[in-house]
């Protein structure tokens, strides 16, 4: 009796929670097909009018490419740096290993706003301009702790034994890294890269502080938002969402294939 009540309550809670989680997304998507000027009920669509406007908006399409560029570039950098550091610290005891790990993980405890502002002050002082490069540098800083932690956790004693077996069978250092370590870590590398790319793609405050003319998509959307609510924003938001979902699906597929190959 009470067990059935518990099960019923569980499903009810799950339903309400999912509704709460999905409510804003549903509203966002639905009113991107609004006909009128206001993205609020009553719904008078469907219409592709605002979608057409978004596709024709150079600011949005430019921002999209800039975001992709910064996201992929900074994620690649963060993954490479994270891998090198994780490999070195997992495979050799360094005198200051504890301090190194603390330093590499430290940015995770500091707000993006503070990291962005510090970079802005430093770049100002050094006379370096704001640019996509500057944004990318900041995004590597915030993503490095994540890529490092993910990869470090995958370089345990079992993996060390696998590398030892390869050395034992005559492989050189370079071959072990290229033919054993990297392929073995492939799913983790992919996951680290993807997480870094997503966080960069979506990051606002550093991008806002470090950009002037070339801006990323979150900054474009932010500036559109300042001129008020509009179904065009809904369409732009839905577009971003759709691209993210496609990327998630793609990575899930890649990870699934990587795991299947490993199996």
């Amino acid at each position: 009796m009470s067990a059935r009540l518990g099960a019923w309550a569980s499903w009810a809670y799950l339903g309400v929670a999912l509704l709460f989680i999905f409510l804003p997304v549903l509203v966002l998507v639905q009113f991107s097909f609004q006909e009128g000027l206001a993205p609020v009920p009553p719904f008078d669509g469907p219409s592709l009018k605002w979608w057409a406007k978004v596709m024709a908006n150079r600011k949005i399409t430019d921002g999209l490419w800039n975001s992709l560029l910064v996201g992929l570039g900074s994620a690649a950098m963060a993954t490479i740096l994270g891998f090198l550091a994780a490999y070195a610290l997992a495979r050799r005891k360094h005198r200051l290993s504890g301090l190194y790990q603390f330093l590499l993980m430290a940015p995770i405890t500091v707000s993006y706003l503070i990291i962005g502002m510090g970079l802005q002050i430093t770049f100002n002082h050094l006379g370096l301009g704001k640019s996509l490069w500057a944004i990318g540098i900041g995004h590597v800083v915030i993503n490095l702790p994540l890529t490092f932690a993910i990869l470090y956790s995958q370089l345990g004693e079992h993996q060390a034994n696998i590398e030892r077996a390869a050395y034992d069978l005559g492989a050189s250092d370079a071959r072990v890294i290229l033919e054993i370590t990297v392929p073995m870590l492939w799913p983790a590398l992919l996951a680290a890269f993807f997480i870094a790319a997503t966080l960069s793609w979506d990051e606002f405050v550093i991008a806002f502080l470090m950009s002037r003319f070339d801006v990323t998509l979150p900054v474009v959307i932010w500036s559109m938002l300042r001129s008020g609510l509009s179904p065009e924003l809904n369409a732009a938001g839905t577009l971003v969402f759709a691209i993210s979902i496609l990327a998630v699906a793609l990575v899930e597929l890649l990870l699934w294939r990587a795991r299947r190959n490993a199996n």
């Binding site: 490999y87 070195a88 360094h94 990291i115 900041g138 490092f148």
Partner: peptide, 25 residues
């Protein structure tokens, strides 16, 4: 001993964190 990655692999990441995180702070 190949590239000696084990002895210097952490240096680039630390340099990055030092230059673009510690220094700005």
């Amino acid at each position: 001993r190949g590239w000696g990655l084990k002895s210097w692999g952490h240096v680039p990441a630390l340099a990055w964190t030092g230059a673009f995180f510690v220094l700005p702070l």
